[in-house]
Design a protein around this nucleic acid. Structure first.
Lengths: 225, 225
DNA sequence: TCAAAAGTGTTCCCGCTACACCCATGA
DNA sequence: TCATGGGTGTAGCGGGAACACTTTTGA
């Protein structure tokens, strides 16, 4: 007989807001782990594909239906006692989102990492794996723009990198690097002064997925901004 | 009610032998997909961790008990009709192995990619994902040595890179790069002439996991050796 | 006129590439 | 002595780091 196991999809949805890297979480109100922060998740349906289940959880449980969130499979967690009630296999997805309002109806909220030292189940481990994935994805893909609104400036994109990596970057070299990179940024023709100073060009995400050569994060001796 | 799903672990075990990248497969002898090549796999037990299940499948189904195979989780495949009999969720693991004899008892054999254009289920897709993972891992980790025997020469390691990437590499620059990289190679003090010519130093795998800066594969205009 | 941020030019340095060259063995 | 592959030296180039400098706005 083949053993059958309940399978859930859990979402590590990250964003950058108020100069901090935040995750979308809700506070559990019953055991186990009552009062702890938890990722949004749900069991997959029997006729449902994994990406479809992730999209459904994003819409229904996370309260972000139709939001422009980049979703990708992260990893699967399956040690037997990760849920004390019954064995559950969890397929984790990573979501990168612009700064959206969290759904109060779904009881979700954006919390900076510093507040998330204690989480339910193994959700802290999953979240940390997601953050590490996001950090490395910024190095060799153009996914940093997934944290930005549809039109954004180079400085806003740079602040995303700085906050996700926890490093300061040289604004001038960063500017050259991303504007020169083929297919990373598409000029909209408009500009804005919302950051003060000289008006900055507004860009949209370009078609390029990979960044070659990659932009490597500086060594850890450089500090948080 | 939470739907329960059978979960299997499937292994993409790769090696380099006879100057070709090969995968460990077996030929199915009954429907569905009778006669097609398949990856080794098995259902996970109810009390079993995922890495433990992968190790068990490697030992029992793949016929490589105790072999020095680097195993890491690849991805999870879950669209509902990937197995026509019943829905099965597959957690794929990638294994990198030195050139070991395949177990005849387990009916496994090493087959070069060129012979594996038609496989059972979605195993070709899984295998291709595993190969792409292996290719990129060679770029930024020291896992190339996982394809080599315990003691190996720089030239043997280079041929691993050349075959996995399908590109020729400059032997002299490659030599400098890997011998200079901190923690990649540990000299054994011995040497060998098994490749002909001047004796080559033998090395063991070093403690370093990551390769910084990475060794990037050349653009695709360079051809197969 | 000044502060602030955008964007450009320039210099230095390091790492990669290409290739000339020498070394140590078997045949 | 020659063929074969191992290993070193070195010049050139391209990209990143550092930073001086100009540009364009709001106040």
């Amino acid at each position: 007989m083949t053993p059958r196991i309940p399978v859930s999809v859990d979402l590590v949805v990250l964003t950058v807001r108020f100069a901090e890297l935040c995750a979308l979480v809700w506070r559990r109100d019953r055991p186990p782990y009552s009062g702890r922060w938890a990722l949004s998740g749900g069991f997959i349906h029997l006729d449902e594909d994994l990406p479809a289940a992730a999209a459904r959880v994003l819409a229904e449980r996370a309260g972000l239906p139709g939001a422009p969130v980049h979703l990708e499979q992260l990893q699967t967690y399956g040690y037997p006692d990760r849920d004390p009630r019954q064995r559950v296999l969890s397929v984790a997805y990573l979501g990168l989102a612009p700064d959206l309002p969290a759904s109060t109806e779904a009881h979700m909220s954006w919390r900076p990492l510093t507040e998330l030292s204690e989480m339910a189940f193994d959700h802290r481990r999953i979240m940390l794996d997601g953050i590490e994935r996001a950090r490395s994805k910024l190095e060799y893909t153009s996914l940093g723009a997934a944290f930005c609104p549809p039109a954004f400036t180079v400085a806003e994109l740079r602040r995303v990198y700085e906050i996700v990596w926890g490093r300061t970057l040289d604004p001038r070299n960063f500017h050259r690097k991303v504007t020169k990179a083929e297919g990373f940024l598409v000029p909209t023709g408009h500009s804005t002064t919302r950051d003060g100073g000289r008006p900055a060009m507004l860009y949209r995400r370009g078609p390029a997925e990979l960044l070659r050569p990659p932009m490597m994060r500086p060594a850890k001796d450089a500090v948080r901004l």
